[in-house]
Design a protein around this nucleic acid. Structure first.
Length: 594
DNA sequence: TTCTACCCGC
């Protein structure tokens, strides 16, 4: 008996060694044949290992795993089910994982092979991938019935699965009900919020962590820095930077990359550069963060400079690298360079341009006034059915007051059934500037028929460690009265330097009571004026104001901000939906071209 | 065997 056992043990070991070196299906078949000829096919450990390898390893084969599972494992144990669920949860058909999980629960031997921590974790991943929220709830119920609702890993997976299904509130509920939380779990809650775009909430989790002395690690910092980047919360980001230094996390490439991105997105390119230069190890994310950072600031030359250094460092660019480059070229008007890079990405780097790259190219030509070329790009892109490209073209037509191509763009948007009030307003503005009253009234009718729905505009400004958010005509801020009083003073002083409300544009918006390019209704107070006024009142003279807003800057606010920067001698950095504007001494870095 | 991270943009 013991001889047989020793024999089997050495065979098992030999087969496991073979499996480790196995990288083709053909070899896998050979190993399986070997298992059978040695009479080991009923050896539970061997079969489980073989199954796990087939299901999970990159060089495995899920169909082969199914074959083994259904024909060679008569009484699958929990770990065998887990192999199947895990394998399919990360495969192109995660629904199958859910199906194996269902079978596991209903199989006659369910009492011998109950689901465990792993089964739940894997099936929850599958629920997340197929966006099956109801299934996620159902699994949650089973988790509770099997007494795993105190398992910190299962709970973390539950949170992620709920959040991935768009239900952050449920994720938070799971989080709140946990009796014990580890650091991973806290980090996961931060990531759930940031994934949902709830960045204030993500930062609030960090306050809780500090109150409860949870500590932090690189994951925590990266998550929080990402939220700071989205919010434009530079001061908070600098605090994180300081924490990273104190706790010794500056050596992490992830943390360094997140810091660069945070500084760049908060409008502090010098800060980004400083972190970049001190990094010992750099990867594609590092270079991309710099290139994209300079790109969205409209500094194409520097984006190109970093791209060239990236090449010299031997780092392979990816599609994001080229988005950053193209964005920089288009905002700086580097048309030829942009075209070169567009071609280079496929010819030299074998990266297929995606819809966003075509979008950049349309923007590149459109901004430069080469509207025919922009139109040609769309027609040659095999993406004529993407509304984003036509909308980009329409915006370019507005800059260059081109009625004809603007009409073509709108026609295509209508053809695609995705035209909205914002598009009609764009074309109406073009008609208005071209003094085409008929066109304006046609658009007015379309807008009336369709009804008006606009995204609410808001602006943020960080003062101290607080981010203050303003909407159009905001009355909700505790200091509202003071802000509006101060605003009058600011407008007067800006007017002394030449600021004039842009009547023409206001009238252009009036008939619709919106301008999607503005933050709100005409004659009303746009959110960035309130944020700027608040910043002027609450920060020391001479300090830079940083505003983040969700829409594009309208012409009136752009002009207002220029004069304010001059009248109050302040540098004002505005990050809009697409790019940065650096206002200083009455001028803007975009050269009034955005 | 399981859980959390950076570049795009939703």
């Amino acid at each position: 008996m013991s001889t047989i056992h020793t024999f089997q043990a050495s065979k098992t070991k030999a087969i496991l060694t073979l499996l480790q070196g196995c990288n083709t299906l053909k070899r896998l078949r050979k190993i399986h044949a070997h298992v059978i000829t040695n009479g080991l096919q009923h050896h539970p450990s061997i079969c489980s290992k073989l199954l796990n390898f087939c299901a999970v390893s990159v060089s495995g084969s899920l169909p082969y795993a199914q074959l083994l599972f259904h024909y060679h494992i008569p009484n699958p144990q929990t770990q065998d089910w887990n192999s199947m669920i895990r394998g399919f949860s990360q495969s192109p058909s995660p629904l199958q994982a859910i199906s194996y999980y269902n079978h596991m629960l209903s199989s006659s031997s369910a009492s011998d092979s109950p689901p465990d921590t792993f089964s739940f974790s894997f099936v929850l991943k599958a629920c997340e991938r197929v966006r099956a929220e109801s299934k996620c709830r159902e699994v949650h119920g089973v988790v509770v019935r099997h007494g795993y609702d105190m398992d910190v890993v299962v709970c973390t997976n539950l949170m992620k699965s709920y959040a991935g299904n768009g239900s952050v509130d449920n994720a938070r509920r799971v989080f709140d009900e946990m009796s014990e939380r580890d650091l991973v779990c806290w980090n996961s809650m931060i990531s759930c919020y940031s994934q949902a775009g709830l960045h204030h909430e993500a930062l609030n989790i960090f306050s809780l962590m500090r109150n409860q002395n949870v500590g932090l690690d690189g994951f925590t910092l990266v998550g929080l820095l990402s939220s700071c980047a989205h919010l434009g919360a530079l001061n908070t980001g600098v605090t994180m930077h300081e924490l990273a230094r104190q706790k010794g996390f500056l050596g992490s490439v992830y943390v360094g990359n997140a810091l660069i991105d945070m500084y760049a997105k908060c409008g502090d390119l010098d800060g980004a550069l400083c972190v970049f230069e001190r990094m010992r190890k750099r990867d594609a994310f590092t270079w991309n963060s710099m290139i994209v950072g300079y790109g969205v600031h409209g500094r194409g030359d520097e984006a190109i400079y970093f791209f060239e250094k990236m090449m010299m460092a031997g780092v392979q660019p990816n599609s994001i690298t080229f988005l950053g480059l193209l964005c920089g070229c288009s905002h700086q008007g580097l048309v030829e360079k942009g075209v070169d890079y567009f071609h280079m990405m496929s010819s030299k780097f074998n990266i297929k341009p995606g819809i966003k790259h075509y979008g950049c190219l349309v923007d590149l030509f459109g901004r430069a006034g080469k509207l025919e070329k922009a139109l040609h790009v769309i027609r040659a892109s095999h993406a004529q059915d993407d509304p984003v490209l036509w909308r980009t073209l329409l915006s370019s037509c507005k800059i260059h007051k081109n009625v004809e191509i603007g009409e073509v763009a709108l026609k295509n948007l209508i053809r695609l059934g995705s035209s909205n009030a914002g598009d009609y307003v764009l074309l109406a503005t073009i008609y208005f500037r071209a003094k085409d009253a008929d066109g304006v009234s046609r658009m007015r009718k379309l807008i009336k028929n369709q009804g008006v729905r606009t995204a609410p505009g808001w602006s943020w400004i960080e003062v101290g460690d607080q981010v203050h958010k303003f909407v159009v005509d905001d009355k909700s801020h505790p200091d509202t009265e003071e802000i509006y009083r101060k605003l009058e003073v600011v407008v007067q002083r800006a007017a002394l330097h030449g600021y004039l409300q842009e009547e023409s544009l206001i009238r252009a918006c009036e008939f619709t009571s919106i301008d999607t390019n503005c933050s709100g209704t005409s004659g009303s107070c746009h959110s960035e004026k309130l944020a700027i006024t608040f910043g002027l009142a609450r920060t020391p003279e001479g300090t830079c104001l940083r505003i983040v807003k969700n829409l594009r800057v309208c012409r009136d606010c752009h002009s207002f901000t220029k004069f304010v920067s001059q009248a109050f001698n302040r540098e004002i950095i505005v990050r809009d939906r697409v790019r940065f504007h650096h206002f200083k001494g009455g001028l803007c870095s975009c050269k009034d071209y955005w």
